[in-house]
Simulated assay, not measured.
Amino acid sequence: MKSWKLIAHAPKETVQAALLAHDEIEEWDYDLVISGREISEDRPQDWVLEGWFPTKPTATQKRALQSLFEGKAPTISVEELPDTDWVSESQQGTPPITAGRFFVHTPDFDPDPDLINFTIPAAQAFGTGQHETTAGCLEVLSAMKSTGMRARSIADIGTGTGLLAFAAARLWPSARVTASDIDPICADVVHTNAELNSVAIGPLPNQVTMVIADGMDDPLLRLRGPYDLLIANILAGPLVELAPDFSGSVAPGGSLLLAGLLSGDQESAVRRAYRRMGFRLVARLERGDWAILWFRRRRLT
């Protein structure tokens, strides 16, 4: 089927700011799928923001893309694409990733017998493993397990595809794992991926329970806390706002894994917020422009 592409060229920081602005819009037209990338390896500061639309985009769709840019927006060009199965094409162009103990791939690739494998279709919600923050979280989870850390109750806030919740369930098979997301669409995505990866859905240990919630605002999430491990790969702003709620949801001595924040000012703001809540930084991983932070809540004296 035919589709169209909207294209905007801008510096790297401008495109990244537009992508973050998009993530904070709750009522976005999700027929318009956007992504950002560098134009070429030898021009790392020159980026392009691309948006795909299933019908010929109107002036409204163009204005929506332009609204993501602060100040004067770059020129938006429109390109008609040939008849193609873009889902299949995107999956074939999505290479597998190895992160810590994990191998994440689309259905087009064979598993790695030496690693923990997850099959996640490329054309899904955020959290396929391709983004630096998701891959970085998988690495830190692997490092946590290597230290001998124990976890009986785990929460993954903003789960997207469910990948990080599944990974935690595999590393700590005796834990009860709760996955949540603010987007109702993610419930079906998580259940589909759980079946695809032989992950049991349910309330028992070695099972994953999925809920739709804004932050920690859910009776089951509150009932299952405090957590030995809480994961949140979302955005810097919500992470700062949720610091008090997360503080009350992590057991003394428990771990907090945060991602979705850019190194620099965003990281500094997040670290300050959680230091005030009684967390200390255990480890930090940097992947690209993104920081992944492992905190531990101080034990009560």
Rank of each mutant, 00 (worst) to 15 (best):
I7H: 15
I7Y: 07
H9W: 07
T14I: 14
V15D: 07
R37P: 04
E38F: 08
I39W: 13
V48Q: 14
G51S: 06
F53S: 12
T58I: 02
S67G: 01
E70H: 09
P74G: 03
I76K: 04
I76L: 14
W86Y: 15
S90I: 09
A99L: 06
T106Y: 05
F109W: 05
I116K: 03
N117L: 03
F118H: 07
I120F: 04
G129L: 00
E132T: 13
T133L: 10
K145R: 15
A151H: 11
S153K: 00
L171C: 06
V177E: 15
C186L: 10
A187E: 15
I201C: 05
N206D: 07
I212L: 04
P219M: 10
L223N: 13
R224M: 09
D228R: 02
L229N: 02
I231K: 10
N233G: 09
A236M: 12
P238F: 01
L242A: 08
P244Q: 07
P244V: 05
P252Q: 00
L258H: 13
A269F: 05
V270T: 01
Y274K: 07
F279C: 10
R280I: 14
R284H: 12
D289S: 11
L293P: 03
R296K: 13
R296S: 10
R298P: 00
R298T: 11
